[in-house]
Computed example of a mutant assay.
Amino acid sequence: MFAILKTGGKQYTVKVGDVLKVEKLNADEGATLELEEVLAVAKDGDLILGAPKVENAKVEVEILEHGKDKKILVFKKKRRKDYKKRYGHRQHYTKIRVKDIKVG
């Protein structure tokens, strides 16, 4: 059984027990959340597609930790104009574990 989940503007294919990094969620570490933006669910060989979401489908997740990703460097330059700009960015993330996928 797997589900396609949307959170933070991105879509993830998840199974029970998966650990993944998503955009920062506002919840404490150790808390349990139910994410309701489920776009599709595959259960016992049947694929249930939503339009746009599957009705009464939820993915129960546990918050493992919050953190910041690796730094990425952004460099901008315009040739012959003596313009150079460099800065870094570290994205906040939340690491979650999928506990259960509920349908109906």
Rank of each mutant, 00 (worst) to 15 (best):
R80Q: 13
G9Y: 13
G50D: 07
R97N: 06
K10E: 07
V54Y: 02
V14G: 07
G88S: 07
R90Q: 14
M1K: 15
K24P: 01
N56W: 00
I96A: 05
D69V: 05
K68W: 01
N26G: 00
K10G: 02
N26Y: 02
H66Y: 00
R79K: 11
V41P: 01
K53I: 07
L64Y: 02
V74P: 09
G88Q: 03
A51T: 14
L64T: 14
H92N: 12
L35W: 05
I63C: 02
L49P: 10
K102I: 15
I63F: 04
V14R: 02
K58M: 11
K10I: 06
V61G: 01
V22D: 14
K85A: 04
K71M: 09
R86S: 10
L25Q: 11
G67I: 06
E23V: 11
A31F: 06
I101M: 06
Y83E: 13
L35Y: 09
V38E: 09
Q91K: 14
Q91P: 01
T94I: 06
L33R: 09
N56I: 00
K15A: 14
D82V: 04
T7L: 13
R90Y: 06
L35N: 08
K99V: 00
R86T: 12
I101T: 02
G50Y: 05
T7V: 15
E34S: 13
K10D: 04
K99E: 08
N56P: 00
A31T: 13
K78C: 03
H92D: 13
Y93W: 08
G45I: 05
R79I: 02
K76S: 06
L20F: 08
L39E: 01
K78Y: 05
R86L: 10
A3C: 11
K77N: 08
Y87Q: 03
A57I: 00
E65K: 15
D100R: 11
K21G: 03
K21I: 08
G8Q: 06
V14Q: 08
